[in-house]
Amino acid sequence: MKTFTPKPADLSHEWYIVDATDVVLGRLSTQVATLLRGKNKPTYAPHADSGNHVIVINAAKVALTGNKLGKELYKHSGRPGGLRRDTYAQLLANNPERIITSAVKGMLPKNKLAKVQLGRLHVFAGEEHPHTPQKPQVFEIAQVSQQAK
Rank of each mutant, 00 (worst) to 15 (best):
2 K>C: 04
3 T>I: 15
6 P>A: 08
9 A>W: 10
10 D>Q: 13
13 H>P: 06
16 Y>P: 03
19 D>M: 00
21 T>S: 12
26 G>N: 04
27 R>H: 12
27 R>Q: 12
31 Q>D: 07
33 A>T: 09
35 L>H: 12
38 G>C: 03
39 K>T: 11
40 N>Y: 02
42 P>N: 10
43 T>E: 05
44 Y>K: 10
46 P>H: 01
47 H>F: 14
47 H>L: 14
48 A>M: 13
49 D>L: 11
52 N>H: 15
55 I>C: 00
55 I>G: 08
56 V>M: 02
65 T>V: 13
70 G>L: 06
70 G>F: 04
71 K>R: 13
74 Y>P: 05
78 G>N: 03
78 G>P: 03
78 G>V: 07
79 R>N: 07
80 P>L: 05
86 D>K: 13
87 T>S: 14
93 A>S: 10
95 N>P: 00
96 P>Y: 05
97 E>Y: 05
101 T>P: 07
102 S>A: 13
104 V>M: 04
113 L>R: 15
115 K>N: 12
115 K>M: 09
115 K>Q: 12
115 K>A: 15
116 V>C: 01
118 L>M: 15
120 R>C: 11
124 F>W: 04
125 A>H: 07
128 E>H: 12
128 E>N: 12
128 E>M: 02
128 E>V: 12
129 H>W: 09
131 H>T: 09
136 P>D: 02
136 P>V: 02
138 V>C: 01
146 Q>W: 03
146 Q>K: 11
149 K>W: 10
